[in-house]
Design a protein around this nucleic acid. Structure first.
Length: 425
RNA sequence: GGAGAGUUGGCAGAGUGGUCGAAUGCGGCGGUCUCGAAAACCGUUGUCGUCGUAAGACGAUCGGAGGUUCAAAUCCUCCACUCUCCGCCA
């Protein structure tokens, strides 16, 4: 969330952000509410002050063994009046708190303004694979190789779930290990393995709630949520904590399954592995000082890109436009790998700087050395990378004329040196 | 799942209805002493908010949310978490 005082003092900036994001949100209404709140607050606070004084006086009278009757009567009156105003104030505060949580982050000034068609391709890597045969789509490949069984996954759970089999399952595990190894050994991340279920406070902390509740799997009896991304548990590691300046930056990487209801997206990418309710992902999360967060974003993107490069997958990097940017982010790059079988660019990574937006919600601060000052950290995260779609890209890019799939060299050490995916026995 | 005990400032730990934002100890910071350091002594030491140019004044905060009361760290209810015992269990 944004700081209320910041909003108050920078209303034009916030209004521009809302406009650039194409959001209809009545900021004036929120500002009116804030003014009302502050008016009530002053009144309540001065009454409380009176009340505190009266209370002290009663204490003094009691100690001196004098009569307190009169004082108690007058304090009762103050108390009643205070109570009434406090009730009104708390209603206003509740409404205001809710509304503030619906204000998105301010897009960074470098972003293209407009809808997704304005996303800017900032660079590309690799070349389109040439085939001397007609490349198959991943849906055909997983069937013929018998490495992923979608009908049975649907039987077990429902549509858009995945059952990996044999080399399919091994490929998945190899990818996870390969990515974690690269990030921990080469990029300086510490591996963490967090819970896959989180509470409401964590979901609010990273910004999934209150806005996206219907997109989340929720366990009603416990009011817990299945994580849509490791970003949620990992960022919340430091919720309500004050970090030491010298501890920053902190780099974490985590493998988790990710669960998404994808409510309202029926009919879109419903076949195959592109849009599924559960997928594996290796995520990178950073906690950094504000002054370095944009440099850290570039490094984060490079870390994700290196995964795709090592896998030999053609990809491009898109800087998201203001309307394509997620609620909590101020700047985001998407990595899109090319899938020649279906002829599509697949979003396999999303790397964002949230500045202090999440840190403010989750209350993650750090103490600057030599000062008493507490500052919010900046948080970033990026997929490094998301798996189901990466599997699609690998299968479609590395397929051979005989219907087998070559295994990218970087993965072979994780697959006992195996070179090719052939039909599952 | 059942029974019991807890949750207080950076930490330890007192406080069971009224000058309690909270004793005391440790730690941190500043100072005295010292060539320097240690020890000792003195002082200081949370966070958030409102008003204010500022100095500052005031308010909130004793796990969270409600309630009782003129008044709550203290009493009551619910919830979360921690510990002990029992049950179940990968």
């Amino acid at each position: 969330m944004l700081d209320l005082r910041f909003i108050r003092e920078n209303q034009d900036l916030v209004k521009k952000a809302l406009k650039d994001r194409n959001l209809k949100l009545d900021l004036d209404d929120i500002m009116r509410l804030d003014e009302e709140r502050r008016n009530y607050l002053s009144e309540v606070e001065s009454l409380r002050s009176e009340k505190n004084k009266a209370n002290d006086e009663i204490g003094a009278l009691l100690k001196a063994k004098k009569d307190t009757k009169e004082k108690i009567v007058s304090m009762k009156a103050i108390s009643e009046k205070t109570g009434e105003l406090e009730d009104k104030l708390s209603l206003i505060e509740k409404e205001l708190d809710q509304k503030i949580l619906t204000i998105p982050n301010i897009p960074h000034s470098s972003l293209p303004v407009g809808d997704a068609s304005n996303n800017k391709i900032v660079r590309s890597w690799g070349e389109e694979k040439k085939f001397d045969f007609k490349p198959l789509s991943h849906t055909e490949l997983i069937q013929s190789l018998d490495i992923i069984d979608l009908p049975r996954a649907t039987k077990i759970t429902g549509s858009n779930f995945i059952l990996y089999k044999g080399l399919g399952a091994k490929l998945e595990r190899a990818l996870i290990n390969f990515m974690l190894d690269l990030h921990t050994k080469k990029h300086g991340y510490t591996e963490v393995s967090p819970p896959f279920l989180v509470n409401r406070a964590s979901m609010i902390g990273t910004g999934q709630l209150p806005k996206l509740e219907e997109d989340m799997y929720r366990l009603k009896d416990d009011d817990l949520f299945l994580i849509p991304t490791a970003e949620v548990p990992v960022t919340n590691i430091f919720r309500d904590e004050v970090l030491e300046e010298k501890a920053l930056p902190i780099y974490y990487t985590a493998y988790t399954a990710c669960f998404r209801r994808e409510a309202g997206s029926y009919g879109k990418d419903t076949k195959g592995l592109i849009r599924v309710h559960q997928f594996d992902k290796v995520e990178m999360v950073k906690f950094v000082k504000p002054e370095s967060s944009y440099d850290e974003l570039e490094k984060l993107v490079a870390d994700a890109e290196e995964i795709l490069q090592a896998l030999g997958l053609q990809y491009r990097v898109a800087m998201l436009s203001t309307q394509d940017l997620s609620f909590a982010a101020s700047k985001c790059y998407d990595l899109e790998a090319y899938a020649p079988g279906i002829g599509k660019w697949l979003e396999v990574s999303s790397c964002s700087n949230f500045e202090s937006f999440q840190a403010r919600r989750a209350n993650i601060k750090f103490k600057r050395e030599g000062t008493k000052k507490l500052d919010f950290v900046h948080t970033l995260n990026g997929s490094g990378v998301a798996l189901a779609r990466t599997v699609v890209a690998i299968l479609e890019n590395y397929q051979q004329k005989d219907g087998t799939v070559l295994i990218p060299e970087a993965l072979r050490p994780y697959l006992d040196g195996l070179r090719t995916i052939t039909v599952n026995p």
